[in-house]
Write a protein that binds this DNA or RNA. Structure first.
Lengths: 114, 114
DNA sequence: TTGCGTTATGTTCCGCTGTGCATTACGCTT
DNA sequence: AAGCGTAATGCACAGCGGAACATAACGCAA
């Protein structure tokens, strides 16, 4: 049966300056790994470059080791690559996110509303 | 020790039209129970009456039985009282909210970021 | 030296959410 | 009949986050 009410929610990881990792930020990191540049990553998820750059900057500032290494100029104009710290950040968030999803699904079953 | 990163999050209960119960909505219901009117409840939490009324209306539309019964005119100009269904809604949300808080605290301990 | 594509950064614009204000309806009290 | 404090509802305005646009800096290639 389809139930009338469902529990929903969001989670993110906070760092020294506020949000450090969230769903969108982590997807952005994955797109950077895939495309090799902030520009292409942003375009692939229909996000403005301006916004994507700010997110990457925020993550880099709050991480002990940068999650993305950027280069300007040169062959292809430059680019951005995910670091090992970036890989760990992605894994850390998805792990918590999976647990959160499981919690939501399970807790929705226990909702007690007539 | 104070850790560098913490898991944060929000939860709410969705109904047929979108958000049905969230933190602010449930506090509003409690204030209505306490003050006996939407006007006083809204003022007590520094929310505009306009907004508070819309939230109550949204909750009433999505609940099988209204969570708040309103009356206009009469002694004192009217007012609003929490129904039994409203009480159950409050209890249902806080119960899920407590479990969520416990999940967040516990999961924060397991965060694995250098 | 010119061209290219990217990073970097400021400025303006838009859409959404909630506030603030004005007005009406209501029903008890005096 | 007049006054009151509330619910109900429309409309203009403000604040904010992100989008869109415009440049500049950079470094390799041709």
């Amino acid at each position: 049966m389809t139930q009338r009410y469902r529990l929903h929610g969001r989670v993110w990881i906070e760092g020294p300056e506020g949000t450090f990792l969230g769903y969108g930020r982590v997807v952005l990191l994955e797109r950077i790994r895939e495309h090799g540049s902030i520009t292409a990553a942003a375009r692939s998820m229909e996000m403005s470059y301006r916004h994507a750059w700010k997110l990457v900057d925020s993550m880099n500032r709050q991480s002990r080791c940068p999650v993305v290494e950027k280069s300007t100029g040169g062959r292809g104009g430059g680019g951005a690559v995910l670091t090992e710290a970036g890989e760990r950040a992605i894994a850390c968030f998805w792990s918590a996110y999976r647990d959160f999803k499981a919690f939501i699904d399970e807790r929705t079953q226990k909702l007690d509303l007539s």
